[in-house]
Amino acid sequence: MVKSLASPPHRLLLFLQQSSVEWCSSLWLDAIREIDPSFKRTLIVVSKFDNRLKEFTEKWEVDRYLSASGYLGDNTHPFFVALPKDRGTISNEEFRRQISQVDTEVLRHLREGVNGGFDEDKFRPFIGFGRLRDYLEEELPKRYKEAAPATLALLEQRCDEVSIDF
């Protein structure tokens, strides 16, 4: 069922995986690769990245993990995100502020808590909800415009089929 829903080429796929799952152990990654072999229409988001940070001590470890160790190819970059630990009953505005604070703390840890930091030029654009939001705000309108002609053609076909029935 998932494969049939994800197969149409106009569909954008969101692949969400916890940071505790190793790339080599990701069963769903293989399924996504069957549907979208080049990951051209797949957005990969790795959640709970703050939990994974404790495992990194050296730059090469961080960079290897952020590059997905060759499992995704050179042109596919997952986003790494973390949420505040306690949502509670705070306002949406406060929650957004806390998300921004978590993004800042994750970057600070990568810069200061890991020997040698991380390849900031290569991976900084993919760390944090703020960066994910920026990407989506830029990418979704482009994809919508690309899909519009095919969508309109399909709507016209459906309208023609319905009008024939009457």
Rank of each mutant, 00 (worst) to 15 (best):
M1W: 07
V2Y: 12
L5R: 12
S7N: 07
P8N: 05
H10S: 14
H10V: 09
L12H: 08
F15G: 02
L16W: 14
L16K: 12
Q17E: 10
S19T: 06
S19Q: 06
S20W: 13
V21N: 03
E22P: 02
S26C: 13
S26Y: 06
S26M: 10
L27R: 15
L27M: 12
D30N: 14
A31P: 01
R33I: 02
E34W: 09
E34N: 08
E34D: 10
D36P: 03
F39M: 09
T42G: 00
L43M: 02
V45S: 03
V45P: 00
V46G: 01
V46W: 05
V46P: 00
S47H: 13
S47D: 02
K48R: 15
D50T: 01
K54H: 11
E55K: 08
F56Q: 07
T57M: 05
T57G: 06
K59S: 02
K59W: 04
W60A: 07
R64Y: 09
Y65F: 15
S67I: 03
Y71C: 04
G73T: 05
D74W: 02
T76E: 04
T76F: 02
H77I: 02
F79G: 01
F80W: 13
L83E: 11
K85W: 09
T89W: 08
I90R: 14
S91L: 06
E93R: 14
E93H: 12
E93N: 07
R96Y: 13
R96E: 11
R97P: 03
R97N: 09
S100K: 08
Q101M: 12
Q101L: 10
V102G: 00
D103M: 00
E105S: 12
R108F: 02
H109M: 06
H109R: 12
L110C: 08
R111Q: 14
G113F: 04
G113H: 05
G113I: 03
V114N: 10
V114A: 05
V114S: 08
N115V: 11
N115W: 08
G116W: 01
G116N: 01
E120A: 09
D121T: 08
F123Q: 03
R124V: 04
G128Y: 00
G128A: 00
G128C: 03
F129I: 02
F129P: 02
G130S: 14
G130P: 01
G130E: 01
R131D: 02
R131K: 15
L132M: 07
L132S: 00
R133V: 13
R133M: 06
R133W: 03
R133K: 15
Y135I: 07
E138R: 11
E139T: 09
K142W: 04
R143L: 14
Y144H: 09
Y144N: 07
E146A: 13
E146N: 04
A147C: 13
A148C: 04
A148L: 15
T151G: 03
T151Y: 14
L154F: 10
E156C: 05
Q157M: 08
R158N: 07
C159P: 00
S163E: 12
I164R: 14
D165H: 12
D165F: 13
D165M: 11
